[in-house]
Structure formats: C-alpha cells, structure tokens
Amino acid sequence: MNAEAQTPIGDAWEPNILAFCCNWCSYAGADLAGVSRFQYPPTVKILRVMCSSRVEPAFILKALKDGADGVLVAGCHIGDCHYIDGNKNAEIRINNTKKALGKLGFDKRLRLEWISASEGLRFSEVIRDFTEEIKKLGQNPVKEVKK
C-alpha cells in the first residue's frame, strides 16, 4: 500500500485503515453491511484473504511501515473457521505481532476481530469504533518522521 494513498476528505486528516477480511465470514459480513446500507466511515480499505491465518506478521509490519494508520484483521468466530482451526492460529500470530508492536508503541493500531457473515451491523460498528480510536491516536508516526 502506498503511503500517499490516503483518503482526503476536505482538508481534514482521515485515518487510513487496512482491513484483511477472511473470504468466508468477514468479507461476506462487509458485503452484507453494504447491501443493508449500514453506514461506516470511508477510512477502510478491504483486502480479501482466504483465511485470517493467511495474514503473516510481515504483511502487518509492512503496511504500518508504509504509512497505514491502522490494520484490522477480521476472521470467522472461533469454531466457525472454514478451515477448522485457521482462526486459532491467526489469534496466536496476531497477538504475538501485537506484543512485538507494543515495543514500538503501535499495538493499538492493530486489531483482531471476529465478524461472521451475518454480522453486517457489527462490521460497520467495528470500523466506526476503530476509526474513532485511530483518530484519537493520530497519524502514523512513520509519516511524521518522514516530513
């Protein structure tokens, strides 16, 4: 993702969130949110992956390094994984990545959420909530140092 690929709305700064959504639950959940016209801020860019455990720590670190203000990883609820226990592995991975990011002060910019295909409303709530939190945290410090 390009650091310049922000979503400018007027002059105000808006967060730039990258969301990895699993194909079977969360992506369908995002779809449902759209179909049901649940409103959520246009701060998120959705990237479809086959399973939340496909998301390597390296992807998250690379996104943050390149200027993403937040990274959301969304998968099926525990026990509902299409690949039986993919999301359990994802939980271990993301939690470990969070700990590694904690040393750099980035741990609040990474979030792991379980969103099922029927939870369109929850998807919009998660995005709204995460956007608010990122707004409080401010811009990714990588970009500030660059300037």
Partner: peptide
Amino acid sequence: AHLGVFTELANLSSKLN
C-alpha cells in the same frame, strides 16, 4: 525466510524516532 518479518520489523523501527 519467514517472508522477511524481521527485516520489516527492523525497517519499521528504523523509521521511528
């Protein structure tokens, strides 16, 4: 190896103060 996760981590921390 490991998709360069340690490289990315070093890269991210090098960009911070």
